[in-house]
Amino acid sequence: MSYPLNPDVLKDDVMREPIRAGFGRGLKAAGQANDQIVALCADLTESVQMHLFREAFPERFIEVGIAEQNLVTLGAGFARAGKIPFVSSYAAFSPGRNWEQIRTTVALNNQPVKIIGSHAGVSVGPDGATHQMLEDIALMRVLPNMIVVAPGDSLEAEKATKAMAENGKPVYMRLAREKTPIFSTPEAPFEIGKAYVLREGHDVALLGTGTMTYQLLVAADLLSKEGIEAEVVHVPTVKPLDAETILASVKKTGRVVTAEEAQAAGGFGSAVAELLGERLPVPIKRIGMLDRFGESGEPDQLIDVFNMTGAKMMATIKQFIDTMPRYHQD
């Protein structure tokens, strides 16, 4: 079954919505379905879209103040009391500031705390490098027991939120601040641990996570006009990786490009490189932030400056294809 893409995805007026908005709706829906869900926030309730839950279930919303270490350790305590806690702040602060608490009281303690890091990536924009969290994927995917999810649009974030509410495990989910084009549809599948082929092709596999999947669809469309047919795979779950789907696409294409709005070192690109290095070594190009911080600017401007628009990625991918041989299996 092919993935039901938004038919308007490549149009200029494609519907856009912040990914975090989907989280807000998903959390409220999850709270309606399960009265064990509690939500904790560190003084950013509307910003991370927890206000919908707070309005619906004030008795299950807990304001923590600007205290991210407390935020996540409270989450561990609520989990011990049988609750399913969603704890939320900006990704720069959680997991940026409270990583050891997450390691000890959530991951090693194996409690189903859902850590929601909003405002990840350079598309945070004018706030600058301090608030543009880029290292969260790397930080979280090295933790045993931890699941790492980076939804590609708001519809998927809503589905991911509902899914993690019921999976009984520690989860980290990264969200973006800015309006992001919606490439999926309400009927599109989402399952934690699954990757989805959005577009079939045989020349190169383009693997994206989070906000970058849309940009890869744009890049693939531009490549197609030059006679290059790229396979686009959306990988919303960075850990555990859907090895089966990724390996199938890479086997078919023999070359792979990864894209993430995060440090490529240690991030999604590294996760894919580890998988392929052990299972199916092929030429790989990682697109993302390359060992540098972001800076202030308009979100679209920064995505462009750091070579993460569809058009910029098209050029990068084309050069990669021109210079790197396809790896032939068998």
Binding site: L74, A76, N109
Partner: peptide, 18 residues
């Protein structure tokens, strides 16, 4: 709870008490 790295127990107890 799991503990060792210091400073984390009071929060967990407080959440339970809440």
């Amino acid at each position: 709870n799991t503990s060792g790295p210091l400073g984390c127990g009071l929060s967990q107890a407080a959440a339970y008490a809440y």
